[in-house]
Each structure stands twice: as C-alpha cells, then as structure tokens.
Amino acid sequence: MTGATISPEQVLKELDARWAELGKEGPGVLRACSMSLLAVCDESDHYASALETIALLMPSHPARAIMIRLRRGESLAAHAAAQCWMPFGQRQQVCSEQIEITAAPESLEEVASLVEPIVAPDLPVILWCRSPRLIQSTGFAHLIGCATKLILDSAAWAEAKASIRQIAAMAARGRSVADLSWVRLTCWREVLSQVFENREHAARLSDISRIHVKYGAGAEAAALYMGAWLVDALDAVHARTDLHIEADSGAPAAQIASVELSGAEFQASFTHQAGRLVTNVGAVSHCAGLPPSSDYALLREELGVRADPVFERTLASAARL
C-alpha cells in the first residue's frame, strides 16, 4: 500500500488477510500479542539492526510491532506481515504481527495519525526511538501521543547532562520514560548490591564517604546515573558522600570503567576488565561475567518492567548533578 490511498482500515485489513492465510496452514497458528511496540528509525539509524532486534524480541514480548522508517523523499507506504516461530519442542507455530511504515521525515505527524488507530486495542503501546535528532523534531510529539511508554537511549546523545535533563523533564510531565543507559547498569548494580548482602559489609555502609566513578567514551550518562544512584542509596543509610565522576580515555567505549566506594577502613572497587566485572572488597576478589548489552538484551529487560521507582528517583537526582 502506498501513496494517498493508505488508511488505517486498509492496514488492518491486510493484517487480517495475513491471519486468514496463516489459518489455512496445517494445525493453524497461535496469535500472540501483549503490547504494541513502535520502533522509529531515521537515516542516522541502522534500520536492519532495529528490525532484527524487534524480531528477536517477539518470542519473549510478542507484540504488534510497528516499524517506522523515515527517509528523505520517501512517500507514505505501509505493509503488514506476520512473524512466526516454532517454540522448541512444540508443534504449533506462534505468530506476532508486524507492520512496516515508510515515510519522509517531515510526514511524522501524518504517520502518527496512521499509527494511532492501528495499535492493538487496550494494550500498552511502547515507543522505542534511538535517534536523538528525531526526538527533537516537532513531528515526534505527535508520535509520543500514541505511546504509553517511551524508551530512549541517552548514550546516543552528544550531550549527556542535557539528555538526562530532557528525559527528567519528560518524566516530570508525567510521561513514562525509560533510558537504556540505565538498563546497561543493571549487572553492575546487582553485583554491587550483592556485596552488601554480606552482613559485615552492610554494617560498614555508613562509613563510606567517597564515591569515584570512571567511564569510557559515550558512557557519561550511565556514569551520571551510577553516581546519582549510589549517592541516593547511601544517603538512605545516612552516609554523607563526595561524588567524583571522571572520564577515562583508556577505558572501553560506552562502558563504565570502574566504581570505587571508600571510607574509614572500608574499600570496595568494581572494575571492568576484558568483558568481566572484577570486585575487590578488602582482600577478597571476585569476578562476574558482564552480559551482552545489545539493544535486544536491554529492551528485553526493559519491556518486562512496568514501573521503575528506583530509576525515577535516580533520574531526578542525576538531572541535578
């Protein structure tokens, strides 16, 4: 479907036709849908990788996926398809719906009016956008209007502090928003938390007076989140801390390089070394694998989260740093 003839009804009709075709095949298929997932990409984005990420997500978060591809000179077009997979050991295919929309960047408002009626009714609508330029565009506001939650990645933004402030401003206006820079920290935060499951270490929490976070290129936003989260958590146990956040040119790009917590007779360090997270607390050293932080892995985690009060607090604190 292309050009001026596209209507939401046509897209939904095409979708129905796909299901009718699939229904004729063998034992039929299971139609799975727990949300609408909108992914919007402009020319700065690698569309094929976004498409692949969405495809990978479907078995764990089946959705009506609506892929929006914006390219200069492109006229509005839409195409509906089904994505099916055979769960291991099962005899029936599970399918989810996929709608691809292509349009010129300036038609984003028009795209939004097409998208709104074709999202799956009564289910959450998640909008994932990787491009900072798109988020700044006026048309994007229309697309946000269709979404119940917005997923961004501040790592892609040039200005980390500005990006966090903008995300915090959206959250302050009541918009449900998530940042993949925060999701990248889950493994770090969990390892750090586990250290203080130990009663002896937990008893030393209030002794901590200094937090030092180092980060590689492109991870400043993550470092700000990490710093804000640590300060907030230690504040809850009445530890007064100084926070130092520092770029480390020798550290791997887009990664936190190290976190150090120190104070009177207590020191804990967490260091990224060749894809592993090395923890040193006193004389004891421990190593944990850092899981891959692909868009797929990050989105898979984030789509499983409904409300994240820890992030909301941390975001507000990070915006003040």
Partner: peptide, 13 residues
C-alpha cells in the same frame, strides 16, 4: 535481623 541493603532493587534484581 539483617541490615537493609539500600542498593537492592526489587524491580530488577
């Protein structure tokens, strides 16, 4: 009773 771990995140961990 164990001291409360302020780093625990019930949503993610």
């Amino acid at each position: 009773m164990s001291p409360v771990n302020p780093f625990h995140d019930p949503v993610r961990f």
